[in-house]
Amino acid sequence: MDTGALLFQKILSQIFVGLSRTTILFIVSSGMSLILGVLRIPNIAHGSLYMIGAFMAFSVSNFFGGGSQGFWMALLLAPIGVAILSLITERGIFQFLYKREHLMLLLLTFALSLIFGDLVKLVWGAEYKSVPVPQVFHGHLTLVAGIPIPLYNLFLLLVGPVVAILLWLFVNKTKMGKISRAAAVDRDMVGAVGINVSRVFAAVFVVGCLLAGLGGVLVAPTVNVTLGMDHTLIMEAFLIVIMGGLGNIWGALIGALIFGLAQSLGILIWPQFGIIFPYAAVVIVLMIKPTGLLKSTW
């Protein structure tokens, strides 16, 4: 095989790696974007919920004896667990603070992320955890140009669009979604026509956090589940949301694509400084368009 074809193959396989990373990033950051767009909370604790989702996936999968059944149960139950936790947080803390400055909310969610981080340490301990890839997704599939793609990555590539479409349907086609979009523009007006805005906000918050939990479950079989995975991810998700346009779900998708691909291709271009490419991409985008690529809801 000549070098050109080899390079092509390398690039293509890196793109597939990048795309499966994109799926995770998109699922987490779309939830963040939803919360940011409607509730105006720059939620740093979002990353903690992602981490909790991954740890819950470990526990649930263990409870059902690992393997395939464990994974599917984790996929079902862990996001629900995260959603319940977020509902408690929203009713207990956030609902009293919607009128506060963004800066205060940012710091509050940072405080929550510290609390959640230690709670995870308390419940699950500080060791690495791993969740097995279910039996169905063992093995590879050769699609194009003889590149073997792990089946689990293909599964991720499938889940991403499904989540995107479901989220689009939720925001645009359900009554709850429509109310939340209205409330994002003018909260008081929506309240004035007799809608319980507080309840709508709680629902949107829970949906957003559910996505964080889902991202955590999906990432669990591919990485070591460990403390501190929240801190690296939250920055990435935050930058993706900013890059895409605050509150714009399609923006989150584009942002995640740019970030994920810059990350995976960057490693190919310059292995040592691969980590720099996604950040550089964000800086370039924001220098050209400070409000993000797509229309923000702010």
């Binding site: 980590i275 720099i276 924001l286 400070p290």
Partner: peptide
């Protein structure tokens, strides 16, 4: 020079992304 034309949250976001870029360089430049 890059960030000052923006205000409030948008300033902060561009600043944090520039800062993360600097962090990434320091972190990897063994």
């Amino acid at each position: 020079i890059i960030t000052v034309r923006l205000s409030k949250l948008y300033f902060g976001m561009l600043q944090i992304s520039l800062g993360s870029l600097v962090w990434a360089i320091v972190y990897r430049w063994y």
